[in-house]
Each structure stands twice: as C-alpha cells, then as structure tokens.
Write a protein that binds this DNA or RNA. Structure first.
Length: 430
RNA sequence: UCCGGCAUAGCUCAGUUGGUUAGAGCAGUGGACUGUUAAUCCACGUGUCCCUGGUUCGAGUCCAGGUGCCGGAGCCA
C-alpha cells in the first residue's frame, strides 16, 4: 500500500493508502471513534467504526494515547464534517510505540513549563505553524538574494575581537588565547563585497547582554547583505524590497499557518508596497509635538521607538541619526557631518527594530579617527582598514534580525517561540 | 545592573481578617454514547503550599533573607 503524507491526501480520494504518524487526539462516541493523527505535514482524522473493524481492532484503538506512534491504513474519502474536508476510513492499524504520560495536554500551560518541554512542544499545532512560517521566511531571504545575484559568503563565528566595540560578547577559550562569538558578520561582509560585489551572510549571532525582554535572545539569526557601489538610498530600497518579498511569499504560501496563528492578514497585506521614510530630525519633532521630551542628539529609548512605529501601519524607515550615537564604521553625511548615513527599520504593531544598516565610511583617515575616539584597538582592524587602501568604493549594507521578523509576521507576543530552541539569559536547555 | 510581579496537585489556578480536615477545572483511569472537532455525562486520585529563619497559642496566609521564573528599563536584531 502506498505511503502518503497528509498534505497530499486530496490527491488520493477513494484510494486505499497508508499514513505514518503520531496520535494527535482521540475522541470516542460509543461504537465510532475519531482518531486524529499528525505526520508533520498536516493532521488527518481517521474514522474507526466498531462494526466494520471488529472488536479486537476497536479495542486496540481504545488503548491508544496521545503521541503514540502508529501507522494507519484505509481509504481516503471526502467529508465536509472533517477538518480539511477529507478523512480516512480506517481498516488496519499498527502501533509502533504506545506512549504514556505525555506531558503536554491539549489544555493551557504556562510558558516556563512549555519551554522546559520545548523538544515536545514543537509537535503542537501552533509551534509547528510558527516554525513553518520561519522556514518560508528563510527560504524567501535566500531566494531573494539569489534572484538578485548576491553571493552567499559565510562569515566566521569565532572572532578575535568585538566588531563594533559595543555589545557584550560571549568569551571562550581558544587554545592559548581568547576568542569571542560573533555579534555580526558585517566587517567580513565588507571584505566579501569588495570581492563579490553583492554579498550576503546569514547565520547565528551572539550577544551576552543581560536583556530579559520579549524581544531579545542571546543567540539569534541575522541576514546581512553588503553591496559595493551602493549608497544609502539604494540600501534602503534593498531592505524594503526584501521585506516586501518576504511578506508576499508568506501570504501566498503559508496562509493556513497564519490562520492557525490567528494573524490579522490585513495588517500584513498593507505591508506589500513601499514604506514611509522619515528622518531622525523629523522623528524628534513628532515626539516633542506629542508630549515626549527628547533633545536632538539623544538616542531613542524603547518607548520613543514604539511611539514612532505606532504612527504608521507599515514598517517605517528612519534615517539620518546623530553620528555620536552610532557605530564607528557609518559614513558621515557629506552635507551635514553631525549625522550619519544610517537607517533603521521599525516594524509596526510594536515589534521594534527589525533592520539596522548604513552606508559605510570609506575614508581611511576618518575611520582611524573614529577608531581612536571609540577607544578601539587599531591592531584588531588592520585587515579591515586594508579594504580602504586597496580600491575603496562607496558601499552599504544592513542586518535584519530573523526572529524579530518572524515574531512580527506571525503576530507573536514573545520572540522565544520564533526559534526552535531559544537561548536566553535564563535558558540554555533543552 | 536597576525597577516591578509571581511561586499551592502532572498542568492552569482559587484559597476570605492568620484558625483547626488546603480546593476547583483540566489531564489520567473505568463506564455510557455511531459524527466528534479543547465533545458531553457518571465514578475514582493526587500535595516538601519554593527554601531557611522569625513573629504567633496557631502561618499556604504576616515579616526578613535566599533561590527560581516572568517582563520592563538600559542595550540592541
């Protein structure tokens, strides 16, 4: 008998097939039983009629428990009463393992309990849907860059120093010296952009900051394109195009999952055309007009950032930040050296900063000055400064935090559900 | 690091002004039911009330310290 996956059930109407999976739920009403099984591709309701399967098989069915592994055999039929419109009339059943005391019941549980059972929680419908959306987003990112002639060049995870000299890094023993887990691949991305023109890297980043909020992980995934001969405006265009591409793909390929998550689709649909762009100075005006007290030159706090994002129903691109509050490698605006050619994209609905990028400083002497100002060790940056000696060109790039994008698109209240096994300040297990 | 909150059954929680025998729902087990969707109905069980110390005739409840967790600030994707 042919083994099929549940997602393909509608192609096997009136055919006898076999499905391998796990018990999702069991309901019984006298001499008819309803056995829902999942196989990772979907959920299928199987009908077990005592009159047609006999006492022995019906008793076997009655002994089944949640998450027991099994193979079911039977005929696929159309039935509007079944979720999904199809069900299986069970004729035979093979149990691989009878599970007992599965800890996650279909009722509510607290977040700590669920995170302690993350290895099992992944089987639940909602978590399954989130990770399928994550998959679609990752696939979209790779396709987007591939279709636009970017080259994937992987950047190292062990690094000898801090790239920006700001974030707290995880330190690890590296033979007779220290190494740090990367917090960004950007500086290496710049080297790659000078070799490949259009570069991107996509992998895990690590930040040892003691942030305990719904927006922070200590290990998260970031995609970072870096483009030679690209100025800040084009950089914004790329970020905008990427986000629109992602939203469109998720809307067309993961609609069922978004429905499972109860996502308001209208809020995503408006995000499929160009985003508003507003300067830092304009933001300061908007903030002060509405009662927030913030002086030009100060960095936005979380409440200010949220306020700005709330003014728009789409992601908003904020640009032109004061140079003092931004990293050493960002290029000064040639028309106003108090600001840098940097930009952030704030997601709507309070999801915070999802993209941060800039045009990069190309002038060797300005970079040397900035490295000194930030009290960074120049010797760590010799190779990076070489890029400004041998064919320096205008170039730009940005980093996009995968998990924050997943949280926003899925409409989740917490980032810990956006990654299979979250790492936070207080969680290293499972 | 700072601020705030929480900790009681396998899970989610209630527990009055400090009062004698600590509860409910769910899950689990057995039974009834041929169309259930977190089914319904009947019956059955479970406690280091986070830990240590204190106040008190008496502490799940009040006080102090500790531990764990939660999310907010800062910082950031």
């Amino acid at each position: 008998m042919k083994v099929i996956s549940i997602s393909k059930v509608k192609d096997y109407k009136e055919k006898d097939i076999q499905v391998n999976g796990w018990v999702y739920s069991i309901r019984r009403s006298g001499k008819i039983g309803f056995l829902s099984i999942r196989d990772g591709s979907g959920i299928l309701q199987c009908i077990v009629e005592k009159a047609s399967v006999g006492d022995e098989l019906f008793d076997l069915f009655k002994s089944l428990t949640q998450e027991s592994s099994l193979t079911v055999f039977g005929k696929i039929v159309e039935n509007p009463r079944a979720v999904g419109g199809y069900e299986l009339l069970l004729s035979q059943l093979k149990v691989h393992q009878l599970t007992s005391n599965y800890p996650i019941s279909p009722k509510e549980h607290g977040p700590d309990f669920l995170m302690n059972h993350r290895h099992l929680w992944l089987r639940s419908k909602r978590q399954h849907a989130i990770l399928r959306v994550r998959h679609e987003i990752v696939k979209s990112i790779r396709n987007f860059f591939d279709e636009n002639d970017f080259t994937l060049v992987d950047t190292p995870i062990f690094t000898p120093n801090s790239a920006e000299g700001t974030s707290t890094l995880f330190e690890t023993d590296y033979f007779d010296t220290k190494a740090y887990l990367c917090q960004t691949g950007q500086l290496y991305g710049e080297a790659s952009a000078m070799a490949f023109g259009k570069h991107y890297n996509f992998g895990p980043c690590f930040r040892a900051e003691k942030s305990k909020t719904r927006r922070h992980l200590t290990e998260f995934w970031m995609v970072e394109p870096e483009i030679a001969y690209c100025e800040i405006k084009e950089n914004m265009d790329w970020a905008e195009k990427l986000l629109i591409y992602i939203v469109k793909n998720v809307l067309s390929n993961k609609l069922e999952e978004l429905k499972t998550l109860g996502r308001d689709l209208e809020k995503l649909k408006v995000c499929t055309s160009s985003f508003p762009r507003v300067s830092y100075s304009e933001c300061i005006e908007i903030l002060n007009k509405s009662g927030n007290n913030i002086k030009w030159g100060e960095d936005f706090g979380s409440p200010e950032e949220t306020f700005i994002a709330e003014q728009y129903e789409k992601p908003v691109i904020v640009y032109g930040f004061p140079s003092k509050i931004k990293a050493f490698y960002m290029k000064r605006d040639p028309e106003n050296d108090k600001v840098v050619l940097g930009m952030d994209i704030l997601a709507p609905e309070g999801y915070g900063e999802i993209v941060g990028g800039s045009e990069r400083e190309t002038d060797l002497n300005i970079l040397l000055e900035r490295i000194e100002e930030e009290k960074l060790d120049k010797s760590d940056y010799e190779w990076f400064l070489d890029l400004r000696k041998f064919g320096s060109v205008p170039h730009s790039g940005f980093g996009m935090g995968l998990e924050r994008v997943v949280a926003w698109i899925c409409g989740l209240s917490h980032i810990r559900e956006t990654i299979p096994f979250a790492r936070t300040m207080t969680r290293l297990n499972p």
